[in-house]
Amino acid sequence: MRRAVPSLTRLARDEGGSTAAEFGLICLVFISMILGVIDMGRLAWRINAAKAATREAARYAVVNPMISTYMANYNGLSQNIPGGQVVPNMAFRCSGASSSCTQIVGSGGNPGFNATVFNAMLAKMQGLDPEIQAANVVVTYRHVGLGVVGDPYGPDMEPLVTVSLTGVTFQSAALQIFGVAPFTLPDMASTLSGESLS
Rank of each mutant, 00 (worst) to 15 (best):
L35D: 03
V86Q: 11
A115R: 02
F183N: 14
P186M: 09
I67K: 04
R55H: 11
L160D: 12
T116S: 15
E131F: 08
A53K: 00
I132N: 03
V163T: 05
F30Q: 07
M33G: 15
S68Y: 07
A57V: 03
E22F: 11
P159V: 04
P111S: 06
P155W: 10
A57Q: 01
Q103R: 14
E56T: 13
S193Q: 15
D156H: 01
S18P: 07
G108F: 13
T140A: 03
D156T: 00
P65C: 14
V144Y: 09
A72G: 15
S193W: 08
I38E: 06
G84R: 10
S99P: 12
L11P: 07
A72V: 12
E22H: 07
I31H: 02
S190A: 11
T54E: 00
L185P: 02
I47L: 14
I177M: 14
F30A: 15
V117M: 13
L11D: 11
P111K: 06
G17P: 02
D187L: 13
R142K: 10
F118I: 03
L165C: 01
Y141T: 05
G179E: 13
S99W: 06
V63R: 05
R13I: 12
V149R: 01
I81R: 12
L11R: 13
S193T: 15
T9S: 12
A91S: 13
V87Y: 08
G36W: 04
V29S: 08
T102C: 09
T102N: 13
N73I: 06
V62M: 00
T166E: 14
I26F: 00
G96D: 08
A52I: 06
V86P: 12
R93E: 09
L43R: 02
K51R: 05
V161S: 01
Y153H: 15
C27M: 15
F183A: 10
E22M: 05
A174H: 01
V86E: 09
A91W: 02
V29C: 11
M40T: 12
N119A: 15
D129L: 05
M40V: 09
A61D: 01
G16R: 15
P6I: 03
M40D: 05
G76H: 03
R3N: 03
V63Q: 10
V87D: 04
T140M: 08
A57H: 04
V37Y: 01
G145N: 08
T9N: 14
V137I: 01
